[in-house]
């Protein structure tokens, strides 16, 4: 892994440096059978402040997941720079079901800790806290195939939080859930974020979801994915995901993002 990410440990002097700095990031895929090159992400630059909640919104296939996978070191970049100023590698919440079917809910949540040889008692304590935080206490001993889609995503979120990493990367974690469940989980995620102060990069194709959650929304164009806008979301915290829909600014911003997505060239 020669091209692994550069993880810079922060010193006190650099306390107000951004947590994530991405510069001129480009990623392409080569299909040797058809001799075809597909540029997935082209010249993307952005930074995320420590403790900030940033959403990347864009249509399917715009390369937003690729950007996140590069941040998580699950994919190699072609060129550009990616710097994470963090004491720990980022934790990822995946879009598709990622709970391990052979482990119980508790064991799934404890998985990252169990790899690091954390003591059983310590693991149990952390898992108990996270079960409570994500509302899964009654399902601690259940197996994944007994859970609904929403509960499986709760398990994924709990697992990503269990070893308390600084940066949380979320790849459309609520994309496959029904609207009610999604609203509940959005509210819970905001509550968790407000208590933990983590840096979050959250991918979604839903403008509504991006505005509900984020401090800033990055808008991406279709392939090859480039950034077309970087918008501040001015709503005060803590937010109420239902009440904020009464705010006129919410709909003005929604309209603005939709205009950008509909015709990115005019932005």
């Amino acid at each position: 892994m020669a091209a692994a990410l550069e993880i810079v440990r922060p010193s006190p002097a650099e306390a107000d440096r951004p947590a994530i700095e991405v510069g001129h990031l480009t990623k392409a895929f080569y299909d040797s059978e058809g001799d075809r090159v597909t540029v997935a992400v082209s010249d993307v630059s952005f930074s995320v402040a420590s403790g900030e909640f940033v959403c990347i919104v864009g249509p399917s296939g715009c390369g937003k997941t690729t950007v996140l996978r590069i941040l998580a070191d699950l994919e190699q970049k072609l060129s550009g720079t990616v710097k994470l100023h963090s004491a720990t590698p980022p934790a990822m919440v995946f879009q598709e079901t990622s709970v391990l079917p052979w482990l119980t809910v508790s064991e799934n949540i404890a998985f990252p800790l169990s790899l690091k040889g954390v003591s059983g008692a310590e693991q149990e304590k952390r898992v108990r806290d996270l079960l409570a935080l994500t509302g899964l206490t009654d399902f601690a001993r259940a197996r994944p195939h007994q859970l609904s889609g929403g509960m499986k995503q709760r398990v994924s979120v709990a697992r990503a939080l269990v070893d308390d990493r600084d940066i949380l990367l979320m790849d459309e974690p609520f994309g496959s859930l029904d609207e009610q469940t999604r609203l509940v989980l959005q509210q819970e995620l905001l509550r968790i974020w407000e208590t933990t102060g983590k840096t979050v990069v959250f991918i979604t194709h839903s403008v509504d979801e991006a505005l509900t959650l984020a401090d800033r929304v990055l808008v991406m164009s279709p392939r090859p994915g480039t950034l077309v806008a970087d918008l501040e979301v001015p709503f005060e915290r803590p937010r109420d995901v239902v009440e904020m829909r009464r705010d006129k600014r919410f709909w003005d911003l929604t309209y603005k993002v939709w205009r950008l997505l509909a015709s990115p060239a005019r932005a």
Binding site: A72, D73, L74, P89, A91, M92, F94, E96, T97, S98, L100, F111, P112, L115, K116, R159
Partner: peptide, 15 residues
């Protein structure tokens, strides 16, 4: 996805 989960959780090759 299970391999990605393992890598993100910091699993070694043996793990």
């Amino acid at each position: 996805i299970y391999m990605d989960v393992a890598k993100n959780a910091g699993a070694t090759r043996l793990q």
